Amino acid sequence: MNQSLVVFKGVKGGLKVYINGDGDIEQIVEDLEKKIKGSRQFFGNSQINLIFTGKRLTLQEQQNIVDLISREIEVGSITFEMTNPDIPAADYFEFFDGIDEGMTRFVRGTVRNGQRIYYEGNVVVIGDVNPGGEIIAGGNILVMGTLRGVAHAGATGNHNAVVVAFSLQPTQLRIGGIIARPPEDESVKPSYPEIAYVKDNILVIEPYLPGKGK
């Protein structure tokens, strides 16, 4: 197959990556890896915001792509613009927009390595989320402890959702289709709660100040 499965196009604020739907995921990842490595000199040390479009990808396929790219270049935000009907039924919710109020699941105790929590509304963890633990919510995520695992709020595509934790140290943070990773050189962790939300299509993390709002 001579047709390129991955096409880069520079856009305002980042790089758009078109994925051809004709290839399987192994071919796509291989093509993407070659292009990323071949363009490393162009990217330099700057953080690059990436927007993926084209082939619909499962959550696991998106994760594999994020892991690959993060090993090769400095990544700012990663957005997947496609909807995702290919994900397993257990991972898919009807659209939920109860961001300010609505159904909420409370999880008491630590979310451990390998444990995955799914809920179509908001999720409140009264405890910690360990590395390898994962929270996926249609609404907001609140961790009344340390978040060291993966958090995906607004999983149905709602970018108004937020993630709040007493100590925000995630391995991956995602709101809607926008993904961000914490800086690897951030050795000193803040001693105050933080909130993550989407602003101008970028995932922002800042101190949580009650009463201030987003």
Rank of each mutant, 00 (worst) to 15 (best):
I126D: 13
P88C: 08
G127N: 03
I99C: 09
I136V: 15
E74C: 01
Y118R: 07
I69H: 03
A137N: 10
F106G: 00
V107L: 09
D128I: 06
F95H: 12
I126M: 09
I73R: 03
R112H: 06
I135M: 11
E74R: 14
I73W: 04
P85D: 04
I126S: 09
D91T: 00
E134L: 09
E120W: 05
I136S: 08
V124E: 13
M103S: 14
M82H: 01
P131Q: 15
R105C: 06
L68I: 12
D100H: 06
T83K: 10
R108T: 13
A90Q: 09
V107K: 05
R116S: 11
V111Y: 06
F95S: 13
G132R: 01
D86T: 04
I73C: 05
F93L: 07
A89C: 02
Y119D: 14
M103C: 03
E72H: 09
D128Q: 08
G109L: 08
E74H: 11
E120C: 03
G98L: 10
I117L: 08
T79E: 08
I78P: 05
N122I: 03
R112K: 14
Y118P: 02
R116K: 15
P131I: 04
E74Q: 11
V107S: 04
A89Q: 12
G76F: 02
Y118G: 00
P131S: 11
T104L: 14
T110G: 00
G121K: 08
F96I: 02
F93S: 04
G76A: 10
F80K: 08
P85W: 09
N130T: 14
E81Q: 15
G133T: 05
D128N: 15
E120Q: 04
D97N: 14
D100L: 10
G132C: 04
I73V: 09
E81K: 13
N122Y: 07
V75Q: 01
V124M: 01
V123Q: 01
R71Q: 13
I99G: 04
Q115A: 13
S70D: 15
P88I: 02
R105P: 00
V125F: 04
Q115P: 00
I99Q: 07
P85Y: 07
E101M: 08
V123K: 01
I117N: 01
E94A: 14
Y92L: 07
N113K: 15
